[in-house]
Design a protein around this nucleic acid. Structure first.
Lengths: 231, 231
DNA sequence: CGGCATCCGGGAAGATACTG
DNA sequence: CAGTATCTTCCCGGATGCCG
């Protein structure tokens, strides 16, 4: 109820509403996308910069500082010999995944959504978790491998949920492996572009159980568009 | 997959990720709070400005234009004699409520959350819907009236959900009526401040079934704080 | 008074270059 | 690789004024 006192700090809403506080914490430009990129595991500065095309180094520095101050991420030093620094989410930071999901689920109904634009590896994997139709998945139990350049993830589909483990995996752990650029995988799953076309273009390779791969693409569907009124 | 083309427009992320698009749509400063304020019904320009302390008229104008262009709200003209203009959410705009909720639920776990700050009528009512413990509510079926100055709402609690109808209501429709400033209601519900104290301060009046009023305050609980590591 | 348009100062974001 | 330094641009916030 204290109101009209001088602003607490830089540019805050000074509102008891939790939503307003969330915007104070992660509402600055790029902040939530930094969180998104860390959602499947810690990353180094330069990886973040590479996976967030358009961000500049100084803005990334500022966002990392702010998110650390607010307790959303922390700096960690990898054990030697790779004693480089990574940024990783705190436990509370990981709990922001529903924010990423609910925003995405709402926004893809916009006519302005353009699935042909650039997409990051983490984004496409998170989108699978967001858009997975648990009913369509049924009791399907499968290991799905993903290779994007040097990054790889092993997905585990089970009881209508999808869990990821980042890092190298053994071919035997995966029933099917997708290897390519994230956008091609998006085209296959959301654009229903046939694998053959993507393989011919050299953007995606599918190895292992091809039937499962096709089945996998049928577990996801974008929600219906919102109809813009004519103006 | 089109990447590195020249930016589509002013300051967009140009990312196929739905989360990034959501930030393009409602990520500008104040935008989501405008949406929040319209979540329980349309408002006029000056009401929005009054309920969003700190926003300036020109920024409000810009946000309203942007949200209208994106199909999130529309201008509507009230029927005569009150032939004034109001801004109201589109159907898709109303579907952004989960965004407001999930952000709020996540952020109140921050040690920086300060429930003593200003809060708007719409915010506190939405927070009830967000924080309602359906199990605690059980099969409680009750009409709860809210009066904030000249604004009034009738809440209907039923099967663990809370629906609102804005506008004047008959005393007979409400089993209990809260009349006061939003912050006092927040103090009663989330701060567990006794009604007597607030009545003495003149910030809240409770009429009707006082036992139900007390019961109502017990249906909500803020989630546990996230423990900030010492630094 | 409601709904803007306009002007201005400060500050955040963006681009580029540079350093340990 | 992981940032810092610098410069420019643009957005935000505040004030004023117009016009129905």
């Amino acid at each position: 109820m204290t109101n009209k006192s001088q602003p607490t700090s830089r540019r805050r809403y000074d509102d008891a509403c939790g939503t307003a506080l969330a915007l104070d914490l992660i509402g600055e430009r790029w902040a939530l996308l930094v969180v998104r990129e860390l959602m499947l595991g810690g990353k180094r500065f330069s990886d973040l910069k590479a996976d967030l095309p358009g961000i500049s180094a100084n803005v990334l520095t500022q966002r990392l500082e702010g998110l650390e101050e607010h307790g959303i991420l922390r700096r960690a030093r990898l054990p030697p010999p790779a004693s480089t620094q990574v940024y990783e989410l705190t436990e509370w930071g990981y709990e922001a995944e529903p924010i990423v999901q609910v925003l995405g689920r709402w926004a893809v109904r916009s006519p302005e959504h353009d699935p042909t634009q650039w997409i990051s590896a983490v984004s496409i994997l998170l989108s699978f978790r967001t858009m997975l139709d648990a009913r369509a998945a049924g009791d399907l139990d499968a290991g799905i491998g993903f290779r994007f350049g040097r990054e790889s993830f092993l997905g585990r589909l089970k009881v209508g949920a999808l869990a990821y483990r980042r890092g190298p995996f053994d071919e035997a752990e995966a029933d099917v492996v997708f290897d390519g650029v994230p956008g091609a995988l998006a085209a296959a799953v959301y654009g229903k572009v046939p694998f053959g076309e993507l393989e011919a273009a050299g953007t995606l390779r599918v190895r292992g159980d091809t039937n499962l791969a096709r089945r996998f693409t049928e577990l996801f569907a974008l929600p219906p568009k919102f109809a813009l009124p004519e103006r």
